[in-house]
Nucleic acid binder design. Structure first.
Length: 300
DNA sequence: AGTACAATAT
DNA sequence: CATATTGTAC
């Protein structure tokens, strides 16, 4: 029976790119076109067989630009360059955010530490301190996450109030959908209003397994999907799940600013701990499939 | 054709 | 902020 189920994340681990594999944080957000224009080597060279690269749009707000070291970008480029039919220059849209396991893990941890009460998009976002991540992103993901949790609760429900959910005995609860979610060590609580007399948060729970003070900053992986074009490439090496391929590029790096929430109520939990966690997986070049995700981070 | 994700609209 | 809906990708 679907041994894959158990293995999918084993594969995953292998798939997980290690920093070395990742794009060198150096010349990060340089659009391919631009790179070509400048005739500089593309970080994404090694193998990109059928990779169709789309245009990269610079993230609009809060850009931490380098102190204008040398090349001022946005000079050449898209001038009918190869009729790239590119972006309208003016209206730049934000690339789709790709929730990579690590990112999700961070998300989960954040929620876990916040407690259901405080686990609202804004707070989560802030606690995550992932740059480039917007509240909307979190909200959307949170919604999905809650759904997932609910589902799991509903099915596994029964006596095990504190059941971790994952690795449920042969119940085979997790559908294909849960891949990503299942990957992350679900804290084991959330949901269930059960606490009648004590609706309050309890956080006896400490983050996750290995949590060293690596203090990493996380970038966000964004996949550049084509806007209008229909699908042109199929999945190459599909994991058990089936879908999982975009060609994500790294975007942005550290820049975090503490935003003050004027309307927020600080309750008893001063959550300002930039906790960090790092799960380093040895990425092994597995079957021709190579997906890059990022997760480089610097220091606070 | 269907499923699933992330984004966007309510 | 939560939920519902739409769009896009696969």
């Amino acid at each position: 029976m679907r041994e894959e189920d158990s293995n999918w994340f084993a594969k995953w681990e292998e798939e997980l790119p290690k920093p070395e594999e990742l794009m060198p944080l150096s010349q990060t957000l340089i659009s391919p076109d631009l790179a070509i224009a400048f005739d500089i080597a593309n970080p994404t060279s090694p193998n990109n067989p059928q990779n169709k690269q789309q245009q990269q749009t610079q993230i609009p707000q809060s850009s931490q630009q380098q102190p204008n070291s040398s090349a001022e970008f946005e000079s050449a480029e898209l001038n009918g360059l190869g009729g790239g039919g590119d972006e309208p220059a003016r209206t730049i849209k934000r690339p789709r955010l790709v929730w990579t396991p690590q990112l999700h893990k961070r998300f989960v941890d954040a929620v876990a530490h916040l407690g259901i009460k405080n686990a609202v998009p804004k707070t989560i976002m802030q606690l995550m301190s992932v740059d480039g991540l917007t509240r909307e992103n979190v909200a959307s993901h949170l919604q999905k996450y809650r759904l997932y949790l609910k589902r799991m609760q509903g099915l596994s429900n029964g006596g095990s109030g504190g059941n971790s959910g994952q690795s449920l005995s042969g119940a085979g609860v997790d559908s294909a959908m849960d891949n990503l979610f299942a990957s992350s060590p679900v804290p084991a609580h959330f949901l269930h209003p059960a606490g009648r007399g004590n609706p309050d948060q309890f956080l006896p729970f400490v983050p996750v397994t290995s949590m060293q003070h690596h203090n990493h900053h996380m970038g966000v992986v964004v996949g550049h999907h084509h806007p209008q074009v229909q699908q042109q490439y199929r999945q190459f090496g599909s994991p058990a799940n089936g879908h999982f391929d975009h060609h994500p590029f790294l975007s942005r790096q550290s820049q975090q600013q503490v935003q003050r929430m004027g309307t927020s109520v600080h309750n008893g939990s001063p959550v300002v701990s930039p906790y960090v966690d790092d799960v380093d997986s040895s990425a092994v070049p597995v079957n021709g499939r190579k997906v890059l995700t990022l997760f480089p981070t610097g220091d606070d």
